[in-house]
């Protein structure tokens, strides 16, 4: 096995082009488990820890450009106000030790349907920036996930960043598991209110072969809210429930050791109802006078 340690993005991309089978390693929280348990013996590891370009975030043209190798702890500490949905999801990942190392880029590349970054990235219409020696391209998040642990990333490409708008309204994330820490989601859900465009974004995790949105639920709730953005009022329980049902209907879950398909569908409906309720409540609170 080789251990390749580039110190710049250009060098990393050259290495990936020369040895496309080289396995990138960022936080190592997925890769090292596979190595420790003999599940993977790649010809080379491509260490991204010394590639400074992908380990920082910035604001570019009104969007946050979050470097692929920024660990969760920094998303939580530094971007909680601008990317509240992603930060909430990040807070639920593993444990402090895992959040100190694990990255959104690693979560994306692993493309597990249960990855916690995916629902908030979907709800915020994120764009994945990938690069190779051939150049840089961007992939809309809905086109990034191709199947269980499969993504649109080409063998010679690295994920360099994810681009997403700072929150323009309340966001929420919720996940079902057996305890608060160290839990792979049985299912998860993210919602983002976009008052500026009058739309609502959703993201479902552990609910289908790939993370996905619930377009019908989004259309339904955008219709219900259209008259309320300017003069917010509490949402009827029937509206919240209908939204939950439509989210549950968008799922295509499986039975596995963590939960049955029927349970997942039900739990997603509950998560959707509650998170929308919380987010809408926050929106109303921001407009206290109109929403007594």
């Amino acid at each position: 096995m080789d251990f390749i340690r580039p110190t710049s993005l250009a060098e990393a991309l050259r290495a990936k082009a020369e040895v496309p089978e080289a396995v990138p390693i960022a936080g190592g929280t997925d890769v090292m488990v596979e190595l420790n348990f003999d599940r993977r013996r790649p010809p080379a590891l491509l260490d991204l820890n010394a590639v400074g370009e992908i380990a920082k975030w910035s604001e570019v043209d009104g969007r946050i450009r979050l470097g692929a190798a920024v660990p969760y702890v920094r998303v939580i500490d530094e971007l909680g106000d601008r990317l509240p949905g992603l930060a909430m999801a990040a807070r639920t990942v593993g444990s402090p030790q895992i959040r100190n190392r694990g990255t959104v880029g690693g979560n994306l590349a692993a493309a597990s349907p249960a990855g916690d970054s995916h629902p908030p990235l979907l709800a915020s219409d994120a764009v994945v920036e990938v690069a190779s020696v051939r150049g840089t391209r961007t992939i809309p998040i809905t086109e990034f996930y191709l199947g269980v642990k499969r993504s649109a990333l080409e063998p010679d490409e690295l994920i360099t960043a994810v681009l997403l708008p700072p929150a323009d309204g309340p966001q929420q994330f919720s996940k079902v598991g057996t305890r608060n820490a160290m839990v792979i989601a049985v299912c998860s859900f993210a919602v983002a209110l976009h008052p500026a465009s009058g739309t609502v974004g959703t993201g479902l995790g552990s609910a289908a072969p790939t993370p996905r949105r619930a377009p019908e639920a989004e259309d339904y709730i955008a219709g219900e809210l259209s008259a309320l953005w300017q003069s917010p009022a509490p949402l009827a329980d029937s509206v919240l429930r209908r939204f939950g049902e439509l989210v549950g209907a968008a799922a295509q879950p499986i039975d596995d050791v963590r939960g049955s398909a029927a349970y997942r569908r039900h739990a997603l409906a509950v998560l959707a109802r509650r998170t929308l309720g919380w987010a809408w409540h926050d929106y109303c609170e921001g407009r206290v006078t109109a929403c007594a």
């Binding site: 936080g27 929280t29 090292m32 260490d47 030790q97 895992i98 190392r101």
Partner: peptide, 10 residues
């Protein structure tokens, strides 16, 4: 960090 999840070369 968990030392078991850091590659030695890192």
């Amino acid at each position: 960090v968990c030392a078991c999840l850091v590659a030695a070369g890192q």
